[in-house]
Amino acid sequence: MLLTFGYGVFLSMFWLLLSGHFEPLLLGLGLASVALTIFLMKRMNILDHESFPIHLATRLPAFFAYIFREIVKANIDVIKRILTWTGKSISPQLVEIQLPQKTDLGRVIYANSITLTPGTVSVELTHDKVIVHALAKEAADDLSTGNMAQAVPDRVIDK
């Protein structure tokens, strides 16, 4: 119930930001829209903590900062390889990595992060491991150290 309400507030904010109009009619319509959305979500059975990770909110900025840095690094790496391409600058690998996260959400964020970061793309995600395609060996090694796994906000859910 609380979740529903919270989500309603969130969607209302979303509406207001999209709309930018504050006439009563549009506000009313907005309210109706949010109600309808919530109704549909209930019907679709997708209203739960996973779809509304508000509990992670506090940790998100840090995470984003981290991930952004990683992305930039990744890009610099890839760009370098592209620009210096001679046919020898990459050495594609497939590696399997154990997942430290225990929740689906956490695993997903982790897998996505892997994709976003230097020279690695997650290819397959299962319950306890992720298969990664790496552009070069260093990247694969880097992953195995588990630095990123630490950064992925998971503990909140883990309690």
Partner: peptide, 26 residues
């Protein structure tokens, strides 16, 4: 079974719905 898609979709679908309704009324 594709968790990533499932989760992302779960997050995105409500936003799309609200966006659609926004488009409807604006």
């Amino acid at each position: 079974h594709n968790l990533i898609l499932r989760l992302v979709s779960k997050t995105v679908i409500p936003l799309i719905i609200v966006f659609a309704l926004y488009v409807q009324f604006h």
